[in-house]
Structures are given as structure tokens and as C-alpha cells.
């Protein structure tokens, strides 16, 4: 196994308040790591910092050889490599409301990777099918259930084939049966060689799904 994500002594501050202090963790290829802790402890912040959506003031982050330095978030043009390596699934899914499930997936394939419409279409249908939402390809986000929307969001994050997938509270809107299915899906993704970092406060899900648990305390 090789290290996909390495975080050392990460510190994030909002004004004078430390939101994260001294966080260190690693995620290997093929590994699922659960980032656990009560609400407000900084789990989501950690994911956002790794995805270069917000700045950090101390420590180091390295994603598959790409280093993020403390300070302001670099411009989007300098993050191309990071974007190819890291996918993020938001807690509220953040699907593009105006596009169908399939088009949520094809958008990046066409406009970021430069695939043709036909190629993007085939790939998107494969991805949605592998996540068991293939039959909902033409539905708009507002027509999807919570579980379906989440799987579409995972499919969209996987469109660029990232090595590291970050998931924020993936079980928040799922019933127990769906949690089991999600656990199986995530294990399948890890089995394919990806590394997964899952922020959750659901200890049962973490125990049943993750290879390791990193606990954050307030």
C-alpha cells in the first residue's frame, strides 16, 4: 500500500478561534479511514481544507505527491492536479439543480476532461449503474430520494476518477438498510484501489466500514 494522503500538524483558525489544531493522519490506497468526533469538532473543515476549498494556517497536506501549503487557497488554475486526485461528496449532496442525474456526472467529463458527449454519456451511465441509480439517470435532483441523490453525488465525484474520495457525513439521511448498502459501495471503491476518508459521527457505521478510525476531540 502507498500513502495517498498525508496530513501533519494541521491547524485551521477562524479569526482567533482554533477550529483544528495539530491534526495528523494518513490514508493509504485501498484504505477507508473514518474521521470521527462530535458535531462542530472540525470534521467537515478538515475535508474542505484537503479539497482546497478553504485555507489553513499551519501544518502540511500532501495528496498523492501534491503539496498544499499554509496560507490562502491557491487559484483554481494551480489546483488542476489536486482536483484530478481528490473527489468530495458533500453532506447535502450539492447536486446541480438544473441538470439531470446523468448530466451532473457528464458535466465535468465533457468540460474538464474534454470527453465527447457520447463518451461522457456512456461513462456516466456506467458509473450510475455501478451505484445502482442507472434507472434514475434522467431524473432531476429534486425528483431523487436522499439515498439516490447521495449515490448520484458519489458518481459525480468519481467522474474524474480521483484516487482519494472524501465523504462528509454520508449516513446523515439514510435508514439502516441504506447504510449497509452504502458501506458495501464504499468497500467496493476501496477495493478498487482508492483511498477513502469519511467524516462521520456514526460510530456503528465507522466500525463496520472503516479500516481505521481517527478520533477528533473538541
Amino acid at each position: 500500500m502507498s500513502t495517498l494522503l498525508r496530513i501533519a500538524d494541521l491547524g485551521v483558525r477562524y479569526g482567533a478561534r482554533d477550529v483544528l489544531l495539530g491534526l495528523s493522519l494518513e490514508v493509504q490506497r485501498g484504505e477507508i479511514v473514518a474521521l470521527m468526533g462530535p458535531s462542530g469538532v472540525g470534521k467537515t473543515t478538515a475535508l474542505r481544507v484537503i479539497a482546497a476549498l478553504q485555507p489553513f494556517h499551519a501544518g502540511q497536506i500532501e495528496v498523492d505527491g501534491f503539496a498544499l501549503e499554509p496560507g490562502p487557497v491557491p487559484p483554481q488554475s494551480r489546483l488542476t492536479r489536486l482536483r484530478r486526485h481528490v473527489g468530495l461528496v458533500f453532506q447535502a449532496h450539492a447536486l446541480f439543480d438544473h441538470l439531470s442525474a446523468k448530466d451532473n456526472v457528464t458535466l465535468a467529463l465533457r468540460h474538464v476532461l474534454g470527453k465527447t458527449d457520447a463518451e461522457a454519456d456512456t461513462l456516466a451511465r456506467e458509473l450510475l449503474g455501478s451505484l445502482d441509480v442507472g434507472r434514475r439517470a434522467d431524473a432531476l435532483p429534486r425528483q431523487l430520494s436522499g439515498g439516490e441523490a447521495q449515490r448520484v453525488a458519489i458518481a459525480r465525484a468519481l467522474a474524474l476518477d480521483p484516487a482519494l474520495l472524501l465523504l462528509d457525513e454520508p449516513t446523515a439521511a439514510l435508514d439502516p438498510a441504506r447504510r449497509g448498502a452504502l458501506s458495501a459501495t464504499l468497500k467496493g471503491l476501496a477495493g478498487g484501489g482508492r483511498g477513502l476518508l469519511v467524516a462521520t459521527h456514526d460510530s456503528e457505521f465507522a466500525k463496520g466500514t472503516a479500516d481505521r478510525v481517527v478520533a477528533l476531540t473538541a
Binding site: 488554475s77 450539492a94 446541480f96 474538464v112 459525480r156
Partner: peptide, 30 residues
């Protein structure tokens, strides 16, 4: 247009111009 959608677009590697053209603009138009 909800900001998480714009952030989702950023994590997918879209440029700010692309985000305006493909994600924010079409929804704002509605």
C-alpha cells in the same frame, strides 16, 4: 444559487468562468 453547488463545481476542476457559464448562470437565469 446555493454556494455548495459552486464549491462542488470547484472540486470537479471547473474554472470560475466555466462555473458561471455551466452552473451558476443557467440557474440564475431561471
Amino acid at each position: 444559487v446555493p454556494s455548495p453547488q459552486l464549491e462542488a463545481a470547484r472540486t470537479l476542476g471547473f474554472s470560475e468562468v466555466q462555473i458561471l457559464r455551466l452552473v451558476r448562470g443557467p440557474q440564475a437565469l431561471r
